[in-house]
């Protein structure tokens, strides 16, 4: 049997490799969050949006840094994923949902406004309102004259009065 020439051998190997590679399929976000619901973006807008979303995702191997700020390879991979998903037209909501699905709410640096988490957003506002009311009440109360006049039994003031009147 005559072997194919070297050129055909190489072509054959390359084709086979391409086919094998083409069949390689890492899990894709579309399986989990559905098809892209936004429009694909590119160029400067892509850089901008990718950065905006990267600051919302927590680097899982770092101590609290976002993937935008972290130099670790894990963060670089995740940033790459964010860019790819954005360029395919996934929305911010979908991208965040995708990461939340595999890492849990831990990966979201901005707490989701749902269930018990909403308290972290509402309690400070509530505190501000209650505090403001208390301040106004206190101002009203302090407008009344005090129960007793300035302490005349304060030793320091008494000593000073003596000193001055001597």
């Amino acid at each position: 049997m005559k072997w194919p020439s070297r050129r055909w051998q190489i072509t054959g190997v390359v084709l086979f490799a391409l086919v094998a590679v083409a069949q390689m399929k890492a899990p894709d976000a579309e399986q989990f969050v559905g098809p892209p619901r936004g429009t694909p973006i590119a160029g400067d807008a892509l850089d901008q949006r990718a950065h905006e979303i990267a600051v919302l995702l927590r680097c899982p191997v770092c101590q609290g840094l976002s993937i935008a700020d972290s130099p670790s390879e894990m963060a670089t991979n995740m940033k790459g994923q964010v860019r790819e998903l954005l360029s395919r037209g996934f929305t911010e909501q979908q991208i965040l949902s995708y990461f939340e699905r595999s890492y849990g709410q831990f990966v979201l640096l901005k707490p989701k406004f749902s269930g018990v988490n909403s308290l972290v957003w509402t309690l400070p506002v509530f505190a501000l309102l209650v505090g403001a009311i208390l301040v106004v009440i206190k101002i009203r109360k302090l407008e009344q004259p005090p129960a007793q006049t300035a302490a005349s039994d304060d030793d320091y003031v008494a000593r000073v009065r003596d000193l001055v009147n001597k």
Partner: peptide, 15 residues
């Protein structure tokens, strides 16, 4: 061999 860490991300692998 994973492809650019995509499988790790889908599995929520941190380290």
């Amino acid at each position: 061999v994973d492809d650019r860490g995509k499988t790790a991300i889908a599995y929520g692998v941190g380290g």
